[in-house]
Amino acid sequence: MTIDVMFPYYGDVAMMKAAVSSVLAQDDKDFRFTIVDDGYPDDTLPDYFAGLVAADGRVRYHRNEVNLGANGNYKKCVGLVEHDIVVIMGADDLMLPNYLSTVRKAFQDPEVSIVQPGVEVIDENGSVYQPLGDSVKQFLRHKLVGKTSEAIVAGEAIAQSLMVGDWLYFPSVAWRADAIKKHDFRPQYDVVQDLALAVDIILSGGKMAVVDTVCFQYRRHRESDSSVRALDGRRFAEERAFFDECVRDFAAKGWNAAARAARLHLTSRLNAVSLTPKVVSKGMWPGLRKLATHAVRP
């Protein structure tokens, strides 16, 4: 069973090359590696990518004629998927050598549509660390599945858990291709599109395997696009719109506990509160108003 590794790229060249090397160094060799370059302006890249394709028949390379943005490039990647399992990897993250073998094993259960393996967080320099937000993610994950090495979860329980706090690490998640193609990424979202996709699959009956085996390194940037969007309030406006949709969808399905969790979106509000000192220090007063609105919104 060949696994599609989709690699939407725009950003730091050195980190991208490290990510590419981590894919090519997998212990499990049965994969197809598709790089979708969103037009990053670096004259050295055409030769680099051409060399990858020439050296390894598993590598494909596409360069977008116009910049599609993150969500648009994710959607293009979905359109290029050819095999039963797919991961849409971050261009600055790292697969540990056992990543593909770990997720392949979890997909042996035919009812599993999503696999969240074990992840460790690294900083800009590649050092492993655990910010407070990631400690919260770990707590919420363990609260749902306990400390077993692997659990399969589905239905309202996981929907409710993810509404309390999103503990998924999108670039590390592997998906059943038919599920991701059926639902795709909602075009209106640029920050929560991965959570929205997972929720759509869960609402349609998809199950998730949560595996403790650490096999992926997720890079946490202090000034990432999502953190900048958080400081100026854009991230939280998008999250509110998404949570409102979830309230309606869960209530329609009779998942009242999940609907309440979506209405409260507790950790999202606490995150807004935690960012307030940084927003004040930067004098981002419009962002401060948006954060305050999100934190106290009834």
Rank of each mutant, 00 (worst) to 15 (best):
S101C: 07
S113Y: 05
G72C: 15
A19N: 09
D109Y: 03
L203V: 02
P110R: 09
R32T: 11
A258R: 09
V136E: 12
T213F: 00
Q188K: 09
D184C: 13
K181I: 03
E223D: 15
D28R: 10
A262T: 07
Y48N: 08
M208K: 08
F7P: 03
S172G: 12
I152K: 08
L24M: 14
L68D: 01
D43S: 00
R63T: 07
A262H: 09
Q193C: 07
P41S: 13
M89L: 15
V279K: 01
D232F: 08
K137D: 10
I114G: 13
M1D: 04
Q26W: 11
D92S: 12
T102W: 07
K207I: 02
T276A: 14
Q26G: 12
M95V: 09
I35M: 02
I88Y: 11
L203R: 09
N73K: 14
V119W: 03
V164I: 04
D92G: 13
A19L: 07
D38G: 10
A295C: 09
A159M: 12
A262Q: 09
V87A: 10
E156R: 02
V53C: 02
Y10T: 00
A54Q: 15
G165R: 09
A14R: 12
V13A: 02
I201L: 11
L266I: 11
F216C: 09
N73M: 06
G254S: 08
A50I: 00
R297P: 02
V5H: 00
G233M: 04
K278T: 14
V81W: 04
V66N: 01
P110T: 06
D93F: 12
M208N: 06
H183L: 00
H265R: 15
V164L: 02
G133I: 09
P8N: 10
D84Q: 04
V119I: 03
V279I: 03
P286I: 05
D28C: 11
F33D: 12
H142Q: 15
M1E: 04
A259R: 01
V53G: 01
P298V: 00
I114W: 12
D84F: 01
G90Q: 05
Y48I: 03
L144Y: 14
A177L: 12
A157F: 10
I202D: 00
D38R: 11
V296A: 06
L100R: 13
S172T: 05
S227C: 08
T267I: 14
M1W: 03
A230N: 07
L162V: 08
N256W: 03
L132H: 04
P171T: 06
D92P: 05
V145P: 01
V86N: 10
V228R: 10
A54K: 15
P117F: 14
C215M: 08
V86T: 14
D30Y: 11
E150S: 13
K207F: 01
I114F: 13
A19D: 06
N125V: 03
L140F: 11
S281F: 03
Y40K: 03
F7C: 02
V66F: 05
P46E: 06
S281E: 12
R229N: 07
S21A: 13
E238K: 05
I202Q: 01
